[in-house]
Amino acid sequence: MTELLKITNLTYKKNYKTILDNINLSIGNGKIIGLLGENGAGKTTLMRLIAGVNSIKEGVITVDDKTKKIDIKKNVSLSDELGGFGRNTKVSEMVDFYQNVYPDFSMEKYQEIAQYLDLDESKRLSSLSTGTLGKLVIALALARNTKLYLLDEPMSGIDSMSRKKIISSIIRWKSDDSTIIISDHYVTEIASLLDDIVIIKDKTVYEMRSVESIQEKYHLGVEEYYEKVYEGGLPNE
């Protein structure tokens, strides 16, 4: 396993507040990682920093041995909330935009995922339910052929049937050598997917651990382990 993402001494401050403090992280390829933390822990900020949308003032982020923003962006697919598109935009227009601006966007892959998730390209953004919007975000993010996928709270506000579909699509369309980082605070939903977890607590990476080691050492599921960490019931090693 080779190192895909490396974060060194990353600190991010905004509006006089430290949001992330001295983050150090190393993630290999071919994994599904859960980025866990309570609301406002800095999960989204960390993802945006990795994707190059927020500017790095202190620290270094390396993706596939590259530190230049443009090279990182080529290797990272972030599930954008699609806020940049007008409410009247048709799904087909958004797909056209992705196909136009991302050279690694696979139309074939998108159509497969869209068919599986029952996405209708003729609909407008304003007419989509939260669940369908969530599915569209995932379909667009996964249809790019990149090394690192950052899925920011993909299950947020989504019904259980759609959640199941999203989870199975993540498993189905993930290539062997790509890595997916999924952030969420509803751990139960994504626990079954994960190889490793990264817990963000007190503005920094509290711990990175494999799901296997949690089960072996503590005989706990990911959710129980995460809860215990947040309640202060487990020592940080």
Binding site: V53, V101, Y102
Partner: peptide, 12 residues
């Protein structure tokens, strides 16, 4: 301002 454009792999 928009991440729609800032995410595109293109230099600033």
């Amino acid at each position: 301002d928009s991440s729609k454009y800032r995410l595109i792999p293109i230099s600033s």
